[in-house]
Design a protein around this nucleic acid. Sequence first.
DNA 1: GGCGCTAGTCTAGACCCCCTAGGTAAAAAG
DNA 2: CTTTTTACCTAGGGGGTCTAGACTAGCGCC
Lengths: 189, 189
Amino acid sequence: MARTGLTVERLTLAAAEMADEVGFENVTVSALARRFGVKDASLYFHLRNAQELRVQVAMLALKEMADRAADALAGRAGKDALIAFANTYRDYAIRHPGRYAAAQLPLDRETAEASAARRHAEMTRAILRGYQLAEPDQTDAVRLLGSTFHGYVTLERAGAFRHTPRTTDATWSRTLDALDALLRNWPPG
Amino acid sequence: MARTGLTVERLTLAAAEMADEVGFENVTVSALARRFGVKDASLYFHLRNAQELRVQVAMLALKEMADRAADALAGRAGKDALIAFANTYRDYAIRHPGRYAAAQLPLDRETAEASAARRHAEMTRAILRGYQLAEPDQTDAVRLLGSTFHGYVTLERAGAFRHTPRTTDATWSRTLDALDALLRNWPPG
DNA sequence: GGCGCTAGTCTAGACCCCCTAGGTAAAAAG
DNA sequence: CTTTTTACCTAGGGGGTCTAGACTAGCGCC
């Protein structure tokens, strides 16, 4: 009965890798146990249930994205910052589709509080400082940017843009131009 | 062995209702069979597999949304049309969360062709005629609008906007103002 | 160095979901 | 009124989630 050295951290990381390989919806306790050469029941010593595993992967993904975004933002401002920030998310979603899907998992209030979600909102607000929007326009702009980035990445991955010849890279670049123009020229209330 | 009178249509509709009640991810062949008081196996006479059931619900949702959007667009143009169109989606997503989730199901190429997806794209293009955008800006604008609407609705439902006091209705309204302003003032390439 | 404790893993098994094969009864067609 | 087809059934295999209870490896302590 050799000890495998399982920990929540190792399980979470392996689950995240599995998510990127086979899709987040196919990450199961059974499959994860198989990966470690261990019985299903063993994982329940470390995890309350299957949902907790999913939540752990979601938290990991949120943190990784926030870390990358923070790096990308360092020393940038204005449109430059906007582009760097947006590209971070899109790149992450493309390179880590399973993790990105995990990050969309609805979290209950306290879990969300403990997650990196707040850092994401703060970084968006930091970018907007370059555009000098007063409240409540700033909040509206935060929500608009979040919606557009998330929506774009989701639809792109779902293949919703495949029916038109134009490359998604080109549209993405122009979308960022458009958002920058919009923020510089925010319509009066 | 009384005949229940199952059809793909009845099953799909019941599955859509179930999705709105308990979430799309909890719509299972077993649960649906229970709802009709028949055995699981019976449904496989009408459905190839569980995935086909999900696809049927997705197609239903896409069609319902396209129908509502077409109604809303009738006789409107410009910003008026933009608002009516956008509200149709948001209302649908709020009233029919399970169906809306179903509509995000990735469809394979031919299924997507047979779906109402094309009508959605055409309606978006119809709205943009009021803003006189030439290609490829028009395609970019279609993608931007789709991304923003879908992203907003998704994040709103996921509770991503709950951490700020501002109402989501207010932001939504201002988001549409902003998009209208952006389309009227699309930045030159 | 033996003793007991705890952590980590296992077996067994209940329950749910997906799906197939093959049987049977009701309805429709001839 | 028989034949065919349609619609549902029973039985059962495979996989996922999760619990209860047994077992053992290794650590801390006298």
